[in-house]
Nucleic acid binder design. Structure first.
Lengths: 224, 224
DNA sequence: TCAAAAGTGTTAGATTTACACCCATGA
DNA sequence: TCATGGGTGTAAATCTAACACTTTTGA
């Protein structure tokens, strides 16, 4: 196989942009790098791709390692491979973004890994090209969110319409008219009103809704 | 640097999906593989990423090697990295798509490389996961084409409105109403009518238009 | 003279946006 | 009783989609 051996191999890693939604803000999970080069700098969480491991599998493993969660919504952002992006060695990194409900993420495990939720609008400078990765992930996620019902992955199973609206506002970065928003929601049969009432955010209480995946699959027309 | 050395390196390659537009059809450039594994199968053109070469640079180099052209419109499609995608060894490949005007591509050079323009709607089975790459590239290109004036990269500098319409029809895969199309074009000041007339496609002759990048940059509102 | 492609406006329908008040409740 | 967030409909404006005939000219 001289065909392959005429060329050199490189390290390939995966970096994950984990989005969460809390208190009306879109957040990203970042931590202080615990190894050289770049020790102490803010950074995404990542890991190296093993020879016998697919890149998507690697991203899932990395995500599981960090959060203890599986079957999260995850998409590839793209490959980042400038020659000097990593100050130590030549490493090509493939970025993925994932959506999680912050309440599913065990606080203790989070502390163990030394990662924190940081508001997307006040991100510090990150290690290497990680800011670029986050920005591209955000662009892709925003786009996806307009045409696919993925936002629910950032919310608890039961949510109020105000929560859902705040989520869409946080992601798109602009205010939405309450009545127009609710009108559109009413047209989507897969966003089901339950009998349950949430009283944590108002005295009157707000109806709790749920995303019904089955109903969505039968008639997948989502538009926001 | 034991941190890196705890992990194995892999080969990384680049594969390019080159789109062209000819005789009303959207085409892709593919050729017969000239090496093992997969010798003789239809395949995208590609190359390995060198250790001292950025991945975008590698894609540009590969594109130049094949076409002799530089400064083409090019975007990354994403990384493909299933463990067994390459039947020979573990290779992660990063796909890019590029747009060229078929008339800029020297026929002789094309023959030397043994590549051909194939209609996107009658693509044969390709080597490895190359069909997947083409489909993803097409999706991305379609999307981009709706919001950015990149279609002109597939046409000669001077083109008729019918040509432009056929291009958009070929890319989107659906017919467009002629009057509505021309109405929208008229609103975009950066698509300039010239004094020139093309008589090759009709007896009456059709006005030739040109994309003015400067005007576009001053007021970039493209929508088709 | 006729076939073939170029060119040109109007109207109905659908979609989007803007906008303000009453309700229920716990403090 | 009042402050807070929950909930609701209508009308104007904009955008989108449908549609048919005249012009020019080379064969």
């Amino acid at each position: 196989m001289t065909y392959y051996n005429d060329h050199k191999k490189v390290w390939v890693s995966v970096d994950v942009i984990i989005f969460g939604f809390d208190k009306g803000k879109l957040k990203v999970l970042i931590g202080r790098r615990q190894m050289d080069p770049g020790r102490g700098e803010w950074s995404l969480y990542g890991g190296f791709v093993a020879v016998d491991e697919g890149i998507d599998d690697c991203a899932e493993r990395t995500l599981y390692e960090l959060t203890g969660l599986k079957n999260l919504y995850m998409k590839q952002v793209g490959a980042f491979g400038s020659v000097n992006r990593d100050p130590g060695e030549r490493v090509i990194s493939i970025a993925y973004y994932a959506l999680i409900n912050v309440k599913d993420y065990d606080e203790e495990l989070r502390n163990e890994h030394g990662v924190e939720w940081v508001d997307i609008n006040s991100m510090p400078a990150l290690y290497s090209d990680h800011n670029e990765m986050v920005m591209k992930a955000l662009r892709l996620m925003r786009q996806k969110m307009k045409t696919e019902p993925i936002g629910f992955r950032l919310l608890p199973q039961l949510f109020t319409l105000t929560q859902l609206q705040r989520l869409y506002e946080a992601v798109s970065g602009q205010e939405i008219d309450k009545r127009n928003f609710r009108k559109r929601i009413k047209e989507m049969d897969f966003i089901e009103k339950t009998e349950l009432i949430d009283k944590t955010s108002s005295k009157r209480g707000a109806a709790l809704y749920r995303f019904n995946k089955k109903v969505y699959n039968e008639d997948p027309n989502f538009k926001l």
